[in-house]
């Protein structure tokens, strides 16, 4: 029987290889959809921020331009928010990295088997707690108990020439400060850095440890002089990933940073981060230019996290895990 004389359903099934063509089309489409989604997000942010980009140009982000954030006059300049993101993330990183590395080393090298599984899941729990819960706990427990006393203790540094501008007091009694946001961020980025560094350490071949041990190195020397240098680019990737997390974290920061466009450079003053200014003002933006300026901050935030994540991914995946 000639193919063209078959009933149409059979012909259709044959033509589509019994559905496989359709299946492949679906697979391709969903793969393309996800790739396209990322491009679409970038495109939308670019288009929506156009009025602000045309009006303010590069002056929108330069640190040396006089900062102004005035929705009534439609004058916007984002440096205070960018500074807030950078300084809180930097402080968080300085405090979180040693802790996270300690945890990673303990989990990968030292922990006895019975302790490893519960500790691993604890680290993951820390990452799973919703951001708003950190914020609520931050406002009512962490700020009054830890941040206010710490801020008071740091105030004398405000008189030291050079670094004084970073510690200008007085600390607000509520504790809503950049310092508070940074300290909450420490807890939030700890699991990210710890988990990725742990994976990097675990990917190092056993022979490296055995060689070091057989040369008479102590366990610490093995870790410090062999494993950490071997995994350094992966660990750097983990740190960058943590930095990206810290910059993108929104709710907890919005709840504890105090949301003010002023504050100078002091970490003992309330401020804004890029994410928190969007969260706080976008729904109540008064004009199209205001909306557009916030979109441009979103664009800067997106570009920055994209860059950091791409770099971190390259360091972790290509330089460490594949090599091992």
């Amino acid at each position: 029987m000639n193919a063209s004389h078959r009933p149409w359903r059979q012909r259709l099934a044959y033509h589509f290889q019994h559905g496989d063509v359709l299946w492949w089309v679906l697979l391709f489409l969903s793969a393309f959809a996800i790739v396209g989604l990322v491009l679409w997000i970038a495109w939308q942010l670019w288009v929506q921020s156009a009025p602000s980009r045309h009006a303010f140009g590069w002056n929108f982000i330069w640190p040396w331009v006089k900062p102004v954030w005035n929705p009534a006059l439609d004058k916007f300049q984002a440096w205070p928010a960018i500074y807030g993101s950078l300084i809180t993330a930097a402080i968080a990183l300085v405090l979180a990295v040693p802790l996270a590395l300690g945890i990673a080393i303990f989990l990968s090298e030292l922990a006895p088997d019975w302790l490893r599984a519960p500790l691993n899941s604890m680290v993951e729990m820390l990452a799973a707690i919703p951001s708003v819960v950190y914020g609520l706990w931050g406002i009512y427990v962490f700020l009054p108990l830890v941040v206010v006393p710490l801020g008071k203790a740091l105030e004398p540094l405000g008189h030291v020439p050079g670094i004084g501008i970073f510690f200008k007091g007085p600390t607000p009694a509520s504790g809503f400060t950049r310092l508070g946001a940074a300290l909450v961020l420490v807890i939030m980025i700890l699991p990210t850095i710890a988990a990725v560094s742990r994976d990097v350490l675990q990917a190092i071949p056993r022979s490296q440890r055995e060689a070091a041990m057989s040369l008479g190195a102590t366990r610490w020397e093995t870790i410090w002089k062999v494993l950490l240098p071997y995994g350094q680019s992966g660990i750097l990737g983990a740190i960058i990933l943590g930095f990206g997390r810290a910059i993108g974290e929104t709710m907890a920061v919005t709840m504890v940073i105090g949301n003010s466009a002023g504050g100078g450079y002091s970490i003992l003053k309330p401020g804004y981060t890029m994410a928190s200014i969007i969260a706080n003002e976008f729904a109540e933006a008064v004009s199209d230019m205001h909306t557009s300026a916030l979109m441009e901050i979103g664009l800067v935030l997106f570009a920055l996290t994209l860059l950091l994540n791409a770099l971190a991914r390259w360091l972790v995946v290509n330089r460490t895990i594949k090599r091992a």
Partner: peptide
């Protein structure tokens, strides 16, 4: 590209995804 995009999507701040949802 898909794996890369997935990782980038996972790292995108959720507030930015909110902006995108608002825009589109």
């Amino acid at each position: 590209t898909l794996r890369f995009s997935t990782d980038m999507l996972a790292g995108t701040p959720s507030i930015v995804i909110g902006l995108f949802g608002y825009a589109v």
